[in-house]
Write a protein that binds this DNA or RNA. Structure first.
Lengths: 110, 110
DNA sequence: TTCGAATATTCGGTATTACGAATTTAATAT
DNA sequence: ATATTAAATTCGTAATACCGAATATTCGAA
């Protein structure tokens, strides 16, 4: 496989590699939401969410539709939700271990 | 979903978010390989590959087995290979667009 | 027009990541 | 013991990512 494709793939994973962006995709799993609704549900800074949306847009994991004053986002392809679902089964399988990892991380972290 | 789990997921995606690490997992898709074999097939610096292996180990996407002088790596769970396969179908679906993206990136990049 | 609401972008600081060079560790063979 | 090979770790530096504050853009309403 050519390296260019691997870089493209890595870009997609990079876009998935942030808790906030995963949360956004999960929120969009049931249908489109406006940027404002996302901001409200996430309870985060407007600029910050907007920046995360920009990352998802740049990698085209989401598409957006403008309606008047608002911008509605939705997941570009259901395959991405399948990936998240697959990951969910992976996490459940290793849940205990994952929890240990998180505990260790937070202990050494601070 | 709790944020701690999202962080764990993000960590896994983060580990996948590098061309070299994707290449490593793809090479391991057909069975275990020693660190040295990986280095040779990738044609990269020993230290660099070893560091990428450390990332994959830390997130437990791979497991390793020591045998004498060598260390053999393999993918921890076939689910991860399924994820990569799913992604492959996604990439094929948007191949044309991906190529445009890559072209634009390399143009503006330098 | 001008105003206000929704969203995006820019900016500056800090933290994280990636790399190669050099060093260290672990195992075997001599 | 010491040399050799495989692999991991440390170190310094450059690049990238993240965040909130401030600013800019875009649209509809008054």
């Amino acid at each position: 496989m050519p390296d260019s494709l691997r870089r493209f793939k890595a870009g997609v994973f990079q876009a998935l590699a942030h808790p906030t962006r995963i949360a956004i995709l999960e929120l969009l799993g049931t249908g489109e939401l406006s940027a404002g609704e996302l901001i409200e549900k996430l309870g985060m800074e407007q600029a910050n969410v907007s920046q995360h949306l920009a990352v998802l847009r740049t990698q085209r994991l989401v598409v957006n539709r403008k309606s008047g004053n608002q911008v509605f986002y939705s997941v570009r392809d259901p395959i991405l939700l399948e990936v998240l679902t697959l990951m969910r089964s992976y996490f459940q399988k290793y849940l205990t271990e994952a929890q240990e990892m998180l505990r260790e991380m937070s202990e050494s972290g601070r």
